[in-house]
Amino acid sequence: MILCRCEEVTYETVRATKEKYQCDARELKLRTRAGMGYCGGRVCRPLLDKISQNKNERLESQVIPLKYQPPVRPITFQRMQGDHHG
């Protein structure tokens, strides 16, 4: 079953990686590429959050487990340059 539609990463892969490496959200993402595709994780993020966290952590934390990075929408290098010039 695919979790991350952009990168076609399956539930089985993500679950197995989590079990094997006991990794946090970021490591899970880097190992499997889940959430790293074109949409920026907007679709599968809640699923990855759920897999990567233990229940207790959820209650305590005031920080989103998987950091958001700009740009939050894909953009060409050309446009990015244009952006800086105003």
């Binding site: 539609r5 952009c6 076609e8 949409c39 679709v43 894909p74």
Partner: peptide, 20 residues
């Protein structure tokens, strides 16, 4: 079609979130 697998894709969210 998906860049790597070639699987067919269409409209998913219809409001700009998913980029499908």
């Amino acid at each position: 079609h998906h860049e790597e697998s070639g699987s067919a894709r269409g409209i998913y969210c219809n409001i700009g979130h998913c980029f499908e």
